[in-house]
Design a protein around this nucleic acid. Sequence first.
DNA 1: ATAAAATCTTAACCTGGTTCAAGATCTTTC
DNA 2: GAAAGATCTTGAACCAGGTTAAGATTTTAT
Lengths: 193, 193
Amino acid sequence: MNIDVIVSHINSYVTLNEEEVRALSSSLISKTIKQGELIVESGEPARYMIFMNAGYVMTYYTDKDGFDHVIQFASTGWWSGDLYSLSENKPTIYSTRALSAGEVLLFPKAAQDQLLDKYPKFERYFRILFHNALMRLQFRIIENYSATAESRYLSFRERFPGMEQHVSQKHIASYLGITPEFLSKTRKKLQQQ
Amino acid sequence: MNIDVIVSHINSYVTLNEEEVRALSSSLISKTIKQGELIVESGEPARYMIFMNAGYVMTYYTDKDGFDHVIQFASTGWWSGDLYSLSENKPTIYSTRALSAGEVLLFPKAAQDQLLDKYPKFERYFRILFHNALMRLQFRIIENYSATAESRYLSFRERFPGMEQHVSQKHIASYLGITPEFLSKTRKKLQQQ
DNA sequence: ATAAAATCTTAACCTGGTTCAAGATCTTTC
DNA sequence: GAAAGATCTTGAACCAGGTTAAGATTTTAT
């Protein structure tokens, strides 16, 4: 199992010693993913945090009318998954689906709890991780309010380089909070300029 | 200084012993706030996390055209402030302003770092705090996409009971991502039903 | 108490984005 | 490799919410 990516990610916030690396390594489950595969399905309790070793996934919410709302994309070096139910042990309302072939590291809730209990460094790592995610999300809310769909699209392309090749336009549209039709028009307009 | 509210808040996630309570207590600075007072101004580096002991505050972002975008309200028992610059020590882009008289507990960055180093329980507490805030924010993004301005307004009233009396309509409108005029129309429509 | 300033309301008009529908392209499957 | 299914594009009609402006109400300062 290749743990280089996750270890160097964690080490950018804290410094793990050998024991901690070993403990982490033995907590993780490697899983190869196929394009289109459903990694977590809404309705079941989420059991893992998901770290991307390679490939692309998206997390989305299906509303009462059956429409999907993409809330997050993730590629190599990002965490994904359904934070909600991990802590509460309730069924998650989010699904996570592979957008390409790749490999994920599954980090089971029980192992995470153990690691958090034993090595405070992981508490720190996750505190900082959540803190940063929180700030990014606050920024996204501001962006959604103050920016037009066109500039949100441009900002999506900047923030997720290469992602566009792996995601269907309807999912990008969903992430941006617009219809596929309008995204199509927006792209055409941008090309013509 | 009254630390009952903050201690019972923290104890809902972890269990502090006497020493930890004492250490926390000596880290906090009590501050009485007046209505309209600017507690943190954008442009300066944020030095504190802010815990509400009593009263109401809002955190907002001023865009390049001079328009304010309210990103958060807080009342008794909530944390507030500008997470962004605390970690990076860069000037914050957010301002925090008192909406009523009250009392806040200021938690200086340096003291927080010390506490986090010495007592892993605080790492855990803040990890969970940020985790929960993150989930709430994810939910708010979904709500913004799938719900109409009217239902967001109703949901604001539910989630912040009593807040409406302390906040001007233009700030509520800003939080909801609509214009004050449209909020005015919406409220009228709701009254007539 | 009164003037000045800020906020809130109402109304007419405007626009970014939606909806619906039809055709064009790309993907899967047998 | 043809048929069926998705996805993507285009256009026309439509609507939620924005903009502007003017008057009404509330708050603040003197």
